[in-house]
Design a protein around this nucleic acid. Sequence first.
DNA 1: TGCATTTTTGAACACTGTTCAATATATTTG
DNA 2: CAAATATATTGAACAGTGTTCAAAAATGCA
Lengths: 206, 206
Amino acid sequence: MGISERKEREKAELRQLILEGAMEVFLEVGFENTSIRKIAERIEYSPGTIYVYFKDKDEILHELHHTAFDRLMEVMEKTAVHAEPIDQVYAIGENYITFALENPQLYELMFVLRAPMKAINPECEWEDGWRTYNYFKSVLIKAVEKGQLKLVDPEVLCVTFWAAVHGLVTLYLRERFHNLPQDQVEPLMRHSLRELVKQYQSPPNH
Amino acid sequence: MGISERKEREKAELRQLILEGAMEVFLEVGFENTSIRKIAERIEYSPGTIYVYFKDKDEILHELHHTAFDRLMEVMEKTAVHAEPIDQVYAIGENYITFALENPQLYELMFVLRAPMKAINPECEWEDGWRTYNYFKSVLIKAVEKGQLKLVDPEVLCVTFWAAVHGLVTLYLRERFHNLPQDQVEPLMRHSLRELVKQYQSPPNH
DNA sequence: TGCATTTTTGAACACTGTTCAATATATTTG
DNA sequence: CAAATATATTGAACAGTGTTCAAAAATGCA
């Protein structure tokens, strides 16, 4: 029976079409203005159809958040070209900021908005987030083992660095750096990050 | 003419009543579920009345955000009991985290949500935020001058510390620390902060 | 009391996420 | 091929949202 296989394929294709339309609308008009009706109109289906393929809007946003993580992971893995872990730490931080500033909507979906998290089973893990977290932590551990970072608990290091860059980009994206001269904000953010990592670097031993 | 004075007083009182009702509803049901109709119902007026006293919903949220800053400012100023600026830096950081965790709704209004910022004239300054920012910066400057913090540009110090604690609490409030053992998250956050400030402290001279 | 102002109202508009009986299409059976 | 069945899609309906504005109610003044 090749028919049921074709049907499954078609279902998967329509599901994908919905996600693509959703991503287009989302990137164009932002989270607050993305509606099911707009997505439906974009792909020329009725609003009701979308609910055959997705439980609710949160599930759609969770899927978009998932593909966003794939992109961030790519950006992070590119830093593996650096031979020294400490150089990779700097590179990950810089790329993280760049990613957030270049993809503000995606960034908010991944780390700010509540919606995509609501689609996650409370028991279950936040796999997407954890993948990137653990990648970064593994680099930090290597840097500590090589004596390039001070002997601080890697969990603490990881949370601190992550929170710092997350804080920088979200304060910026949500316009809380409004009073700083706008053309100096991005350099300031990047300077802040470099200085931060520097403070945690091991001092040259005598 | 005492009548027009009384009328003005009554108008101010109703405005205040709306804000109090709005704050009640907001704290009870959160930002996403706060509606003009619910506020109106709470104070037993019709929805239309609210629009006589406020331009739109954002203006109401901006007012709430304003009183929230008054509370945070109180909490910060209490740290002035510390004689040494460096002690005050630690205390401000700790109180900031405590404030955010005890008043999550208010915190999001102040530093996360877009709504209250939309009510601000784009030309104008974000006074509420700037008041607290400058207070913190002045303490940092004192700590640097006293040789308690390393000679880092106070602006960089200020942005870094602020971003770090903001990052910690927002990742927590938006459930991005979901995978960490929940009972260890708050201690971890506070540990992260202490370690951070420690790194920026001046080494003992000679 | 009658008139003029001010204040308050609530229906109406255009949206939102979501549901579900009815319709349309596609597949299988006789 | 035609009828019956199964699947897919629809769009009206529901309860909610922020906001507006003509009408109604309340108040002040002569």
